[in-house]
Design a protein around this nucleic acid. Structure first.
Length: 553
RNA sequence: GCGGGUGUAGCUCAGUGGUAGAGCAUCACGUUGCCAACGUGAAUGUCGAGGGUUCAACUCCCUUCACCCGCUCCA
């Protein structure tokens, strides 16, 4: 008897398995692979396109079709640049980032500790070995010998706002001075830092047929410019027709709030939902499709009367959590996490994350934020257009009469469709318990236990052998499924056992097999992916049986 | 961006300074006909890319691209 194929030892192997399966079976390929690939970009192959689409369709069904109070939107990815000025993305997403020259740590300058003039600047290393290495690095690079006391390096002190210095023992005179940036690296408290670099997380491009580089070249031609002067001119010229790819889908729903509310005569509370691509120049991309620069979102803005946001937030956090669990095999890998007050974005008064326990730990799937009236007010200010709701029933506190204008508060469940796709792949992937096959060998079955509604193919129709009229009958059956809008797959390659195995691996929940008996009495077998059990049903009823099981699942 | 690892057939991986290997997958023929079957035969490679050292580089050196694992980003 052969030893069973080893199942993944740990969770990190699971990611490798998933990535490998995705490529092998046509779920997800690296973008531009034949050219060496492109960082963080991925293409969804035939199966992946189906899976992602099914997930997004289920979201749309739950959020838009099945609710009277929510409507859909499909907005342009490129929007007026003022949208991003109003939303704060142009300023807020341009974080000044700095690298510590000694520890190589990268951090945001605006969050770093700021020792005042007169303060000592001890460099606190992780351990003695590190202290030794950093000590050496500083000596080599800056020509000063700091005092090493355990894992702390001493001798530096802030002199004034713009200078720090090295002070030898018992000396009030600085032996050496350096320009001070006003802050130190958070991890070790080091003042030796790289230049601040602006990381604009938005993708900038230009709208219009004239290449901005030409105008730019003309503007700086023949001029001797300092770096700051050149930057200012370039910013101005590029800015003239600069546009941005949206970093989130949400803003269009605020910007079109009034149009949609009026066109559909919507009464608060109501929601606007949108799915689509968003783009962010992430500092680091990681974990396959988990964090990528181009990604897909499913967002909904729910507008409520001021004061009722808490109630709405409570509703949506539970509703959204249960939506994820509905399609998952292991509901225990999800959790809700409320943000700490200091963690909240400036526009939010409360926020929950729905997190999933990925192989590398808990990570976010969706954020459900109570965004107050921040966005509508900001867009109203910047555009000069009133973005309020008139409630004819509510009493105006000033006049005492019925009818009042107010700016609604917003609760926003914002989900990552790309991440959700990865999450359901992880949730579905498993090795079935080993069992002996017909030859007595022990085989471990690799199965994607995808929820039937998410599975790329709902049913595979297989002729047992490629003759005696079985292929023809099988094709007729497939056609019936197509006519009913159920994605079926005809498959006649290889021996039937191999076809079962391949369909298990891509998550096809049911296989219908046409055999000799089918031709005699009009029956086929239906095989269940998870149990591998088969039962015989009438061909005439096959469509109903499958449709019924899909509806019940 | 920094550190660590990886890159060889469609896939999973061996490999050595001297003519590129295995298993699986693929194709053909035969036997078979319900869970990755067996036999026989065939095809398959810019050894991630670009330079350098060498009589000779998949192997050693440099550069670069991509992926994976850690630091920061919150869909």
């Amino acid at each position: 008897m052969n030893a069973p194929q080893a199942a993944p030892e740990d969770e990190l192997d699971l990611m490798k398995e998933i990535i490998s399966l995705c490529k092998q079976r046509g779920f997800i390929f690296q973008s531009s692979e034949i050219y060496g690939g492109l960082k963080s970009c991925y293409d969804y192959g035939p199966l992946g396109a189906e899976l992602k689409r099914n997930i997004m369709n289920e979201w749309w069904r739950a959020m838009v079709h099945e609710r009277e109070d929510i409507v859909g939107l499909d907005a342009s990815i490129i929007m007026h640049t003022n949208v991003w000025k109003a939303s704060g993305h142009l300023a807020g997403f341009a974080d000044p980032l700095v690298d510590c020259l000694i520890s190589k740590e990268r951090f945001r300058a605006d969050n770093a500790p700021r020792p005042e003039p007169g303060a000592d600047l001890p460099i606190a290393c992780g351990d003695k070995g590190q202290a030794k290495a950093y000590h050496k690095a500083i000596t080599e690079r800056f020509g000063i010998e700091l005092r090493r006391r355990g894992k702390v390096l001493e001798g530096l002190k802030v002199i004034d706002e713009e200078t720090f210095g090295f002070f030898a023992d018992d000396s009030d005179e600085a032996a050496e001075t350096f320009p001070y940036r006003g802050y130190v690296s958070p991890e070790i408290g080091c003042p030796f830092l790289s230049d601040e670099r602006q990381f604009n997380l938005m993708f900038r491009t230009s709208l219009g047929p004239v290449d901005p580089v030409q105008r730019l070249a003309r503007a700086i031609e023949g001029k001797a410019l300092s770096r700051d002067e050149a930057t200012a001119i370039i910013e101005e010229k590029i800015g003239e027709n600069a546009v941005y790819l949206r970093p989130e889908t949400a803003q269009a729903m605020f910007v079109q709030f009034a149009n949609i509310q009026q066109a559909l005569s919507l009464k608060v509370p109501f929601g606007i939902a949108q799915m689509g691509k968003s783009f962010r120049n992430e500092i680091t991309v990681e974990h396959f499709i988990f964090r990528s620069c181009e990604f897909e979102q499913m967002e909904m803005e729910y507008f409520v009367e001021p004061g009722k946001q808490k109630e709405a937030l409570d509703f949506w956090k539970d509703e959204r959590l249960s939506w994820y669990q509905r399609y998952a095999n292991d509901p225990s890998r999800f959790r809700l996490r409320q943000h700490e007050p200091e963690e909240l974005a400036h526009y939010a008064d409360d926020c929950y994350d729905i997190e999933y326990e990925y192989p590398w730990g808990w990570g976010e799937l969706e954020g459900i934020a109570s965004r107050t009236d921040y966005d509508l007010k900001k867009h109203s200010e910047h555009s000069g257009v009133r973005l309020t709701y008139f409630d004819p029933e509510k009493e105006n506190p000033e006049t005492g009469k019925k009818g009042v204008h107010y700016t609604p508060y917003v609760v926003e469940p914002a989900a990552g469709a790309t991440r959700t796709t990865l999450m359901y792949l992880l949730d579905a992937f498993c090795y079935d318990s080993p069992r002996p096959d017909a030859q007595g060998k022990v085989k471990t079955r690799r199965v994607l236990k995808l929820h039937p509604r998410l599975a790329p193919y709902k049913v595979a129709v297989l002729p047992l052998v490629k003759r005696d009229g079985m292929p023809e009958l099988a094709r007729e059956i497939v056609q019936q499924f197509f006519n009913s809008g159920i994605n079926a797959k005809y498959d006649e390659q290889h021996q039937v056992g191999k076809r079962y195995a391949r369909h298990d691996e891509v998550g096809t929940p049911y296989c219908l097999t046409v055999d000799g008996e089918s031709l005699e009495d009009g029956t086929v077998t239906i095989r269940d992916r998870d149990t591998t059990e088969q039962e015989r049903i009438k061909i005439d009823e096959a469509l109903q049986v499958v449709a019924g099981r899909l509806a019940d699942s």
